[in-house]
Simulated scan of single mutants.
Amino acid sequence: MGFQQSFKALSDPTRREILALLRAGPMAAGDIVAHFHVSGATVSHHLSILKEAGLVLDERRGKYIYYELNMSVVDEILEWFTALKGEG
């Protein structure tokens, strides 16, 4: 996982919207799918890309998979932007 993979994942508006949904906390995959007008397979593909980029974590709870933001990677990206901007 590196910045290149993270930025590629962030380049898609659907994936950015998924990340915005996860700001409120962990969500089941089905609950994420319910927010979009695309197939479950399409959302699953987006979640897979976000997971590969390290932006989300997943956890199986019974028969459901819950996704949440991986704040350590988000913080790393924000620190890079802050350094690039010359602050802090």
Rank of each mutant, 00 (worst) to 15 (best):
F3Y: 13
Q4L: 14
Q5M: 14
S6Y: 05
S6W: 11
S6I: 07
F7C: 08
F7E: 09
L10I: 05
L10K: 05
S11F: 02
S11E: 12
P13T: 09
T14C: 06
T14N: 13
T14F: 12
R15N: 02
R15H: 02
R15Y: 02
E17Q: 07
E17K: 12
L19K: 01
L21A: 01
A24V: 09
A24L: 07
A24K: 10
P26V: 02
P26G: 03
P26E: 13
M27P: 02
M27S: 08
A28Y: 06
D31Q: 11
I32F: 02
I32T: 06
I32Q: 08
I32R: 00
I32D: 01
V33M: 00
F36R: 00
F36K: 01
H37V: 08
H37F: 05
V38Y: 05
V38H: 05
G40W: 00
A41S: 15
A41K: 15
A41L: 14
T42G: 08
V43M: 02
V43W: 00
S44F: 07
S44D: 05
H45E: 13
H46M: 01
H46N: 06
H46A: 10
H46I: 04
S48W: 01
I49C: 06
L50W: 03
L50S: 02
E52H: 07
E52D: 10
A53F: 02
A53H: 00
A53Y: 03
A53W: 03
G54H: 01
G54M: 07
V56K: 00
V56Y: 00
V56M: 00
V56G: 00
L57D: 11
D58C: 04
D58A: 03
E59A: 03
E59K: 03
R60K: 15
R61C: 01
R61K: 11
G62K: 12
G62R: 06
Y64V: 13
I65F: 07
I65A: 07
I65P: 05
Y66G: 10
Y66K: 13
Y67F: 12
Y67C: 02
E68C: 13
E68S: 15
E68G: 12
E68K: 15
L69A: 11
N70D: 08
N70K: 09
M71V: 15
S72L: 15
S72D: 15
V73P: 04
V74T: 06
V74K: 03
V74R: 03
D75S: 04
D75R: 10
E76D: 12
E76I: 03
E76C: 12
I77H: 02
L78T: 08
L78F: 14
L78R: 12
W80S: 13
W80D: 14
F81D: 09
F81G: 09
T82S: 15
T82N: 09
A83M: 11
A83P: 09
K85C: 07
K85N: 06
E87V: 15
